[in-house]
Amino acid sequence: MAKIAVVDFPGSNSSAEVVRILKNLDQDAFLLNYRAESAKEAAAIIIPGGFSFGDYLRPGALVKGTPVTGLVKRYANDGKPVLGIGNGFQILCEIGILPGVLLQNPSMKFCNEEANVRVESHGSPFTKYIPEDTMMRLPMACYYGSFYTDKRTIKDLEDAKRVALRYYDQYGEVDLYNGFLSSLHSLAGVTNKEGNVLGLMPRIDLATDSLLGLTDGLMFFKSLINYLNE
């Protein structure tokens, strides 16, 4: 059975949580220390949310050059599934696997709202088995959640259908303001060219248990597990 590695940096705050979620879905998963240079037999890597290395300098920046980032790059280049959630998304941008950067929310507020998010691309292992046009309710937990890149890059991302998730308002229209974030093109998640790497800002790991209210985050983990069992 395929295993999934969940990266643990100093300051990651949901690595153990993601392992627990996967195990609850009968999926073998283990914590991968940031000093690790190999992920043993892992078929996929997940970089969880939190504040890696205190988010000093810039969110996600201080992980650069750690052994595990070399490993993540190899997985990404080899076409294996790599997922970054929240801080994990910021890390994937900082180490150059995904385009753009996550800026401080223009509202200057920590965003802890719930967001309506639609899956717009099914090319990644994490969205492949999610039904088309699925509208989800997902929690946010970020201070640096405003996606930014230059005009040419955002056009390329749109043309190549790499915007995997987008924020919508309560009326089902694209939410330009997206509850404090003002993320460019209301982008909530983006993939690499090949589609095997996905970074997303909504905290899908905080929406997996009906005891906590929201469960839509489970769809991404289930999709990955289905993909690995193909």
Binding site: A61, L62, K64, E94, G100, V101, Y148, T149
Partner: peptide
């Protein structure tokens, strides 16, 4: 180049 700045911003 390697760490201190993000040239995108």
């Amino acid at each position: 180049d390697r760490l201190l700045i993000n040239p995108d911003i």
